[in-house]
Computed example of a mutant assay.
Amino acid sequence: MLVDEALSLFVGHQYSQNRSEYTVVAYQTDLNQFFKFAALELGQEPETLTVDQVDIYIVRSFLGALSEHGLARKSMARKLAALRSFFKFLCYKEILQNNPVQRVASPKLGRKLPHFLYLDQVEGLLGAPDGTDLLGCRDKVILELLYGSGLRVSELVGLDRNNLDLDSGLIRVLGKGSKERVVPVTNYSIAAIKAYLGMRADQDQALLLNYQGTRLTERSVRRILDKLVAKISLEQHVHPHMLRHSFATHLLDGGADLRSVQELLGHKKLSSTQIYTHLTRERLKEVFSQAHPRAKVPNKDKKT
Rank of each mutant, 00 (worst) to 15 (best):
Q44S: 13
L90H: 00
L109E: 06
N32A: 08
Y27C: 03
N32L: 08
L49C: 06
A81I: 10
A82T: 06
R111A: 09
F62P: 03
A65W: 14
L63N: 06
R19H: 12
P46Y: 03
P107I: 04
E94Y: 06
G43E: 04
G70T: 00
S106L: 01
A77R: 05
E47R: 15
A81F: 09
F87E: 06
T29F: 05
R19S: 11
F87N: 06
S61L: 12
A82C: 10
L71F: 07
N99W: 08
L109H: 05
D30T: 10
L49R: 02
T23R: 02
L113I: 04
R60A: 14
A77N: 08
V51F: 01
G43W: 12
R84L: 05
D52T: 04
M76L: 06
V101Q: 02
R111H: 06
V104M: 05
Q44D: 05
L71Y: 07
V24S: 02
K112V: 05
Q44I: 15
I56H: 12
F87C: 05
N18H: 12
F87G: 03
D55I: 09
K36Q: 15
Y27I: 00
C91I: 15
D55S: 13
Y57L: 14
G64R: 14
A105I: 12
L63F: 11
P107A: 05
I56Y: 09
E45V: 15
L96V: 11
R60T: 15
L109Q: 11
E21R: 15
Y57E: 14
S67C: 10
K93D: 14
T29C: 02
A77T: 07
L66A: 05
K79P: 02
R73E: 09
N99R: 10
R60K: 15
K74N: 11
F62K: 07
A39Q: 11
D52E: 12
L109P: 02
F62N: 01
S106W: 04
L90M: 08
L31H: 00
L31Y: 00
Q28N: 03
A77Y: 03
E45F: 14
A38N: 13
C91A: 14
R73S: 12
T23W: 04
S75H: 11
F87R: 10
N32G: 05
Q28L: 03
Y57W: 12
F87S: 04
R60H: 14
R19N: 14
L83T: 04
H69C: 12
K79T: 03
Q97C: 07
I95G: 10
N99C: 08
K93F: 06
D52I: 03
R103N: 13
C91D: 12
Q97S: 13
K108L: 07
S75L: 10
P46M: 01
L80P: 04
F86S: 07
P100G: 06
L113S: 06
H69G: 11
A105H: 13
P46W: 00
L40V: 11
L71V: 07
N99D: 14
Y27S: 04
L90T: 00
A65T: 14
D52Q: 08
R84F: 04
F37Y: 10
A72I: 03
L49P: 01
Q28P: 01
L31P: 02
V59P: 00
G110Q: 08
E41A: 14
S67G: 12
M76S: 05
F34R: 01
K108F: 03
Q33I: 01
E45L: 15
F35L: 09
N99T: 13
F87H: 10
F37W: 04
L96N: 08
V101N: 02
K79D: 00
